[in-house]
Design a protein around this nucleic acid. Structure first.
Lengths: 155, 155
DNA sequence: ACACAATAGTCAGTGCACTGAGTAACTCGG
DNA sequence: CCGAGTTACTCAGTGCACTGACTATTGTGT
Protein backbone atom coordinates (compact mmCIF):
# COMPACT_ATOMS: atom_id res chain seq x y z
CA UNK A 1 0.00 0.00 0.00
CA UNK A 2 0.92 3.65 0.36
CA UNK A 3 1.38 4.07 -3.33
CA UNK A 4 1.60 7.60 -4.65
CA UNK A 5 -0.43 9.43 -7.30
CA UNK A 6 2.01 10.02 -10.14
CA UNK A 7 -0.22 12.67 -11.70
CA UNK A 8 0.87 15.02 -8.92
CA UNK A 9 4.54 14.44 -9.70
CA UNK A 10 5.97 17.11 -12.01
CA UNK A 11 8.72 14.78 -13.22
CA UNK A 12 6.24 12.18 -14.38
CA UNK A 13 4.13 14.84 -16.07
CA UNK A 14 7.17 16.37 -17.73
CA UNK A 15 8.03 13.01 -19.24
CA UNK A 16 4.48 12.50 -20.47
CA UNK A 17 4.47 15.99 -21.91
CA UNK A 18 7.59 15.25 -23.88
CA UNK A 19 6.16 11.99 -25.15
CA UNK A 20 3.05 13.84 -26.29
CA UNK A 21 5.20 16.40 -28.01
CA UNK A 22 7.27 13.73 -29.72
CA UNK A 23 4.08 12.18 -31.06
CA UNK A 24 2.90 15.45 -32.57
CA UNK A 25 6.34 16.33 -33.88
CA UNK A 26 6.81 13.14 -35.84
CA UNK A 27 3.35 13.34 -37.36
CA UNK A 28 3.15 17.09 -38.03
CA UNK A 29 6.72 18.30 -38.50
CA UNK A 30 9.19 15.65 -39.61
CA UNK A 31 10.13 12.03 -39.22
CA UNK A 32 13.72 12.72 -40.28
CA UNK A 33 14.65 15.80 -38.29
CA UNK A 34 14.04 15.69 -34.55
CA UNK A 35 13.18 18.59 -32.29
CA UNK A 36 16.72 18.89 -30.82
CA UNK A 37 18.15 18.77 -34.35
CA UNK A 38 15.83 21.61 -35.34
CA UNK A 39 17.12 23.50 -32.31
CA UNK A 40 20.65 23.23 -33.65
CA UNK A 41 19.62 24.35 -37.14
CA UNK A 42 17.81 27.27 -35.54
CA UNK A 43 20.79 28.31 -33.40
CA UNK A 44 23.05 28.27 -36.47
CA UNK A 45 20.52 30.28 -38.45
CA UNK A 46 20.66 32.94 -35.76
CA UNK A 47 24.42 32.80 -35.29
CA UNK A 48 26.31 31.11 -38.14
CA UNK A 49 29.83 29.95 -37.38
CA UNK A 50 29.19 29.24 -33.71
CA UNK A 51 31.39 26.62 -32.09
CA UNK A 52 29.96 23.27 -31.04
CA UNK A 53 29.94 23.86 -27.30
CA UNK A 54 28.13 27.19 -27.57
CA UNK A 55 25.50 25.72 -29.86
CA UNK A 56 24.92 23.05 -27.25
CA UNK A 57 24.53 25.74 -24.63
CA UNK A 58 21.99 27.65 -26.72
CA UNK A 59 19.91 24.56 -27.39
CA UNK A 60 20.32 22.91 -23.99
CA UNK A 61 22.43 19.90 -24.98
CA UNK A 62 25.50 18.73 -23.07
CA UNK A 63 28.87 18.20 -24.76
CA UNK A 64 28.29 14.52 -25.52
CA UNK A 65 24.78 14.92 -26.88
CA UNK A 66 25.57 17.93 -29.04
CA UNK A 67 28.43 15.94 -30.58
CA UNK A 68 26.06 13.17 -31.64
CA UNK A 69 23.39 15.52 -32.95
CA UNK A 70 25.95 17.52 -34.92
CA UNK A 71 27.48 14.39 -36.40
CA UNK A 72 24.05 13.28 -37.63
CA UNK A 73 23.28 16.65 -39.18
CA UNK A 74 26.68 16.77 -40.78
CA UNK A 75 26.33 13.23 -42.13
CA UNK A 76 23.09 14.34 -43.80
CA UNK A 77 24.82 17.34 -45.28
CA UNK A 78 22.83 19.94 -43.34
CA UNK A 79 25.85 21.59 -41.75
CA UNK A 80 29.61 21.93 -42.14
CA UNK A 81 32.07 21.44 -39.33
CA UNK A 82 35.55 22.95 -39.59
CA UNK A 83 38.39 23.49 -37.13
CA UNK A 84 38.64 27.01 -35.85
CA UNK A 85 41.91 28.28 -37.42
CA UNK A 86 42.31 30.58 -34.43
CA UNK A 87 41.76 27.90 -31.77
CA UNK A 88 42.57 24.31 -32.65
CA UNK A 89 40.24 22.91 -30.00
CA UNK A 90 37.07 24.33 -31.43
CA UNK A 91 34.89 23.19 -34.28
CA UNK A 92 32.97 25.94 -36.03
CA UNK A 93 29.56 25.02 -37.40
CA UNK A 94 27.73 26.56 -40.33
CA UNK A 95 24.58 25.52 -42.16
CA UNK A 96 24.80 24.30 -45.73
CA UNK A 97 22.30 25.62 -48.25
CA UNK A 98 20.24 22.54 -47.70
CA UNK A 99 20.46 23.03 -43.94
CA UNK A 100 19.12 26.56 -44.30
CA UNK A 101 16.35 25.36 -46.60
CA UNK A 102 15.39 22.61 -44.18
CA UNK A 103 15.24 25.09 -41.34
CA UNK A 104 12.94 27.39 -43.30
CA UNK A 105 10.63 24.55 -44.22
CA UNK A 106 10.40 23.21 -40.67
CA UNK A 107 9.90 26.62 -39.12
CA UNK A 108 6.48 26.83 -40.74
CA UNK A 109 5.50 23.37 -39.63
CA UNK A 110 6.69 23.79 -36.04
CA UNK A 111 4.55 26.90 -35.74
CA UNK A 112 1.48 24.96 -36.86
CA UNK A 113 2.40 22.08 -34.56
CA UNK A 114 2.80 24.35 -31.55
CA UNK A 115 -0.65 25.77 -32.18
CA UNK A 116 -2.20 22.31 -32.21
CA UNK A 117 -0.19 21.26 -29.18
CA UNK A 118 -1.35 24.24 -27.13
CA UNK A 119 -4.86 24.34 -28.57
CA UNK A 120 -6.49 22.92 -25.41
CA UNK A 121 -5.43 26.09 -23.57
CA UNK A 122 -6.74 29.63 -23.94
CA UNK A 123 -4.34 32.34 -25.07
CA UNK A 124 -3.69 33.51 -21.50
CA UNK A 125 -3.25 29.97 -20.30
CA UNK A 126 -0.72 29.31 -23.04
CA UNK A 127 1.39 32.28 -22.02
CA UNK A 128 1.12 31.27 -18.38
CA UNK A 129 1.99 27.67 -19.19
CA UNK A 130 5.21 28.61 -20.98
CA UNK A 131 6.16 31.08 -18.27
CA UNK A 132 5.64 28.53 -15.49
CA UNK A 133 7.77 25.90 -17.24
CA UNK A 134 10.50 28.44 -17.79
CA UNK A 135 10.49 29.52 -14.16
CA UNK A 136 10.69 25.97 -12.83
CA UNK A 137 13.41 24.92 -15.29
CA UNK A 138 15.50 28.03 -14.77
CA UNK A 139 15.30 27.69 -11.01
CA UNK A 140 16.40 24.04 -11.08
CA UNK A 141 19.13 24.88 -13.57
CA UNK A 142 20.35 27.51 -11.11
CA UNK A 143 20.82 24.85 -8.44
CA UNK A 144 23.44 23.12 -10.58
CA UNK A 145 26.19 25.76 -10.36
CA UNK A 146 26.62 26.70 -6.68
CA UNK A 147 26.98 30.28 -7.85
CA UNK A 148 30.10 31.04 -5.81
CA UNK A 149 29.67 34.82 -6.10
CA UNK A 150 32.73 37.07 -6.27
CA UNK A 151 33.08 36.61 -2.54
CA UNK A 152 32.84 39.75 -0.44
CA UNK A 153 33.78 37.59 2.52
CA UNK A 154 37.04 37.10 4.48
CA UNK A 155 40.53 36.39 3.09
CA UNK B 1 18.10 35.02 -40.49
CA UNK B 2 14.50 34.38 -39.46
CA UNK B 3 15.54 32.22 -36.56
CA UNK B 4 12.90 31.42 -33.99
CA UNK B 5 12.81 31.94 -30.21
CA UNK B 6 12.93 28.45 -28.75
CA UNK B 7 11.73 29.67 -25.35
CA UNK B 8 8.26 30.02 -26.89
CA UNK B 9 8.29 26.39 -28.07
CA UNK B 10 6.60 24.05 -25.61
CA UNK B 11 8.57 21.07 -26.91
CA UNK B 12 11.87 22.71 -26.18
CA UNK B 13 10.67 23.79 -22.76
CA UNK B 14 9.35 20.31 -22.00
CA UNK B 15 12.76 18.87 -22.76
CA UNK B 16 14.48 21.43 -20.57
CA UNK B 17 12.00 20.74 -17.79
CA UNK B 18 12.81 17.08 -17.89
CA UNK B 19 16.52 17.75 -17.85
CA UNK B 20 16.04 19.97 -14.81
CA UNK B 21 14.02 17.25 -13.16
CA UNK B 22 16.64 14.64 -13.94
CA UNK B 23 19.27 16.83 -12.30
CA UNK B 24 17.26 17.16 -9.09
CA UNK B 25 16.28 13.50 -9.08
CA UNK B 26 19.83 12.18 -9.25
CA UNK B 27 21.03 14.54 -6.53
CA UNK B 28 18.05 14.38 -4.17
CA UNK B 29 16.40 11.00 -4.71
CA UNK B 30 18.67 8.31 -6.11
CA UNK B 31 21.51 7.66 -8.51
CA UNK B 32 20.56 4.00 -8.85
CA UNK B 33 16.80 4.09 -9.36
CA UNK B 34 15.48 6.37 -12.07
CA UNK B 35 12.17 8.17 -12.10
CA UNK B 36 10.52 5.74 -14.56
CA UNK B 37 11.78 2.84 -12.47
CA UNK B 38 10.19 4.41 -9.41
CA UNK B 39 6.99 4.68 -11.41
CA UNK B 40 7.01 0.93 -11.95
CA UNK B 41 7.69 0.21 -8.27
CA UNK B 42 4.84 2.54 -7.42
CA UNK B 43 2.39 0.91 -9.82
CA UNK B 44 3.20 -2.51 -8.38
CA UNK B 45 2.80 -1.22 -4.85
CA UNK B 46 -0.70 -0.08 -5.75
CA UNK B 47 -1.59 -3.21 -7.73
CA UNK B 48 0.68 -6.19 -7.09
CA UNK B 49 0.62 -8.93 -9.69
CA UNK B 50 -0.15 -6.66 -12.61
CA UNK B 51 1.02 -7.83 -16.04
CA UNK B 52 3.84 -6.07 -17.82
CA UNK B 53 1.78 -4.30 -20.46
CA UNK B 54 -0.65 -2.85 -17.93
CA UNK B 55 2.17 -1.60 -15.75
CA UNK B 56 3.58 0.15 -18.80
CA UNK B 57 0.20 1.71 -19.42
CA UNK B 58 -0.06 2.97 -15.83
CA UNK B 59 3.39 4.52 -15.90
CA UNK B 60 3.34 5.73 -19.50
CA UNK B 61 5.94 3.43 -21.01
CA UNK B 62 5.49 1.61 -24.32
CA UNK B 63 5.92 -2.15 -24.62
CA UNK B 64 9.62 -1.99 -25.55
CA UNK B 65 10.62 0.46 -22.87
CA UNK B 66 8.69 -1.24 -20.09
CA UNK B 67 10.47 -4.48 -21.01
CA UNK B 68 13.87 -2.88 -20.50
CA UNK B 69 12.92 -1.14 -17.27
CA UNK B 70 11.41 -4.32 -15.86
CA UNK B 71 14.47 -6.35 -16.80
CA UNK B 72 16.71 -3.90 -14.95
CA UNK B 73 14.53 -3.95 -11.84
CA UNK B 74 14.35 -7.71 -11.96
CA UNK B 75 18.13 -8.02 -12.40
CA UNK B 76 18.54 -5.93 -9.24
CA UNK B 77 16.12 -8.17 -7.39
CA UNK B 78 13.45 -5.52 -6.86
CA UNK B 79 10.67 -7.46 -8.58
CA UNK B 80 9.72 -10.95 -9.67
CA UNK B 81 8.43 -11.81 -13.12
CA UNK B 82 6.44 -15.01 -13.64
CA UNK B 83 4.32 -16.37 -16.48
CA UNK B 84 0.61 -15.99 -15.95
CA UNK B 85 -0.60 -19.60 -15.51
CA UNK B 86 -3.97 -18.55 -16.94
CA UNK B 87 -2.56 -16.80 -20.03
CA UNK B 88 0.77 -17.95 -21.39
CA UNK B 89 1.45 -14.66 -23.13
CA UNK B 90 1.49 -12.53 -20.00
CA UNK B 91 4.17 -11.96 -17.39
CA UNK B 92 2.88 -11.08 -13.94
CA UNK B 93 5.03 -8.69 -11.90
CA UNK B 94 5.30 -8.47 -8.14
CA UNK B 95 7.67 -6.53 -5.88
CA UNK B 96 10.17 -8.39 -3.75
CA UNK B 97 10.61 -7.36 -0.12
CA UNK B 98 13.56 -5.26 -1.15
CA UNK B 99 11.51 -3.73 -3.93
CA UNK B 100 8.82 -2.71 -1.45
CA UNK B 101 11.45 -1.33 0.93
CA UNK B 102 13.09 0.66 -1.86
CA UNK B 103 9.74 2.11 -2.85
CA UNK B 104 9.03 3.21 0.72
CA UNK B 105 12.42 4.85 1.06
CA UNK B 106 12.18 6.71 -2.25
CA UNK B 107 8.61 7.87 -1.64
CA UNK B 108 9.85 10.14 1.14
CA UNK B 109 12.66 11.52 -0.94
CA UNK B 110 10.54 12.15 -4.04
CA UNK B 111 8.11 14.17 -1.94
CA UNK B 112 10.96 16.36 -0.71
CA UNK B 113 12.33 16.65 -4.21
CA UNK B 114 9.00 17.69 -5.66
CA UNK B 115 8.75 20.44 -3.08
CA UNK B 116 12.14 21.81 -4.03
CA UNK B 117 11.37 21.46 -7.73
CA UNK B 118 8.12 23.42 -7.44
CA UNK B 119 9.40 25.84 -4.81
CA UNK B 120 9.68 28.75 -7.25
CA UNK B 121 5.88 28.66 -7.67
CA UNK B 122 3.19 29.64 -5.17
CA UNK B 123 0.75 26.97 -4.02
CA UNK B 124 -1.91 28.06 -6.52
CA UNK B 125 0.62 28.25 -9.31
CA UNK B 126 1.81 24.75 -8.51
CA UNK B 127 -1.69 23.32 -8.80
CA UNK B 128 -2.27 25.27 -12.00
CA UNK B 129 1.08 24.16 -13.42
CA UNK B 130 0.30 20.47 -12.92
CA UNK B 131 -3.22 20.88 -14.27
CA UNK B 132 -2.01 22.63 -17.42
CA UNK B 133 0.60 19.97 -18.18
CA UNK B 134 -2.02 17.28 -17.70
CA UNK B 135 -4.48 18.98 -20.03
CA UNK B 136 -1.94 19.44 -22.80
CA UNK B 137 -0.56 15.90 -22.49
CA UNK B 138 -3.96 14.28 -22.32
CA UNK B 139 -5.18 16.20 -25.34
CA UNK B 140 -2.17 15.22 -27.45
CA UNK B 141 -2.48 11.64 -26.24
CA UNK B 142 -6.07 11.68 -27.44
CA UNK B 143 -4.95 12.53 -30.97
CA UNK B 144 -3.08 9.22 -31.19
CA UNK B 145 -6.05 6.82 -31.30
CA UNK B 146 -8.53 8.09 -33.94
CA UNK B 147 -11.27 6.93 -31.61
CA UNK B 148 -13.27 5.14 -34.30
CA UNK B 149 -16.50 4.96 -32.28
CA UNK B 150 -18.81 1.96 -32.65
CA UNK B 151 -19.96 3.36 -35.94
CA UNK B 152 -23.67 4.15 -36.19
CA UNK B 153 -23.08 4.84 -39.86
CA UNK B 154 -23.75 2.70 -42.93
CA UNK B 155 -22.36 -0.82 -43.06
C1' DA C 1 -11.73 -28.26 -35.37
C1' DC C 2 -9.33 -24.98 -38.08
C1' DA C 3 -8.04 -20.78 -40.11
C1' DC C 4 -7.70 -15.86 -38.89
C1' DA C 5 -7.30 -12.13 -36.05
C1' DA C 6 -5.86 -10.00 -31.84
C1' DT C 7 -2.69 -9.73 -27.97
C1' DA C 8 1.83 -9.99 -24.97
C1' DG C 9 6.26 -9.93 -25.34
C1' DT C 10 11.02 -9.94 -27.75
C1' DC C 11 14.55 -8.10 -30.75
C1' DA C 12 17.08 -4.88 -33.84
C1' DG C 13 17.74 -0.24 -35.11
C1' DT C 14 17.82 4.80 -34.22
C1' DG C 15 18.08 8.81 -31.33
C1' DC C 16 18.34 11.74 -26.99
C1' DA C 17 20.69 12.36 -22.45
C1' DC C 18 24.00 11.98 -18.67
C1' DT C 19 28.52 10.55 -16.40
C1' DG C 20 33.36 9.74 -16.17
C1' DA C 21 37.74 9.09 -18.34
C1' DG C 22 40.88 10.46 -21.77
C1' DT C 23 43.29 13.57 -25.48
C1' DA C 24 44.71 17.64 -27.84
C1' DA C 25 45.11 22.53 -27.69
C1' DC C 26 45.30 26.81 -25.46
C1' DT C 27 46.46 30.05 -21.25
C1' DC C 28 48.80 31.74 -17.52
C1' DG C 29 52.36 32.17 -13.83
C1' DG C 30 56.99 32.03 -12.98
C1' DC D 1 60.14 28.87 -22.20
C1' DC D 2 57.81 25.48 -19.52
C1' DG D 3 54.85 23.17 -16.42
C1' DA D 4 50.05 23.40 -14.41
C1' DG D 5 45.53 24.28 -15.11
C1' DT D 6 41.64 25.08 -18.17
C1' DT D 7 38.95 24.23 -22.24
C1' DA D 8 36.88 21.72 -26.45
C1' DC D 9 36.03 17.58 -27.92
C1' DT D 10 35.93 12.33 -28.11
C1' DC D 11 34.81 7.78 -26.41
C1' DA D 12 32.72 4.09 -23.56
C1' DG D 13 29.01 2.90 -20.71
C1' DT D 14 24.16 3.23 -19.05
C1' DG D 15 19.36 4.32 -19.51
C1' DC D 16 14.89 6.11 -21.61
C1' DA D 17 11.93 6.20 -25.81
C1' DC D 18 9.97 5.06 -30.29
C1' DT D 19 9.28 2.17 -34.59
C1' DG D 20 8.80 -2.00 -37.21
C1' DA D 21 9.36 -6.88 -37.67
C1' DC D 22 8.90 -11.28 -35.51
C1' DT D 23 7.20 -15.25 -32.18
C1' DA D 24 4.09 -17.42 -29.23
C1' DT D 25 -0.27 -17.73 -27.31
C1' DT D 26 -5.08 -16.97 -26.99
C1' DG D 27 -9.69 -15.94 -28.77
C1' DT D 28 -13.24 -15.98 -32.44
C1' DG D 29 -16.16 -17.26 -36.22
C1' DT D 30 -17.85 -20.58 -39.00
Amino acid sequence: MSAVDLTTHPGHLARRLQQAHHLLWTTMVSEEITSPQFGVLNALTAEPGLDQRTVGERVGLDRSTIAEVVSRLSRRGLLDKVRDPGDGRRFLLRLTDEGARTHRKLTVRTARMNQVFLAPLSAEEQALFLALIRRVSDAAEGLRAPEEPASTGPS
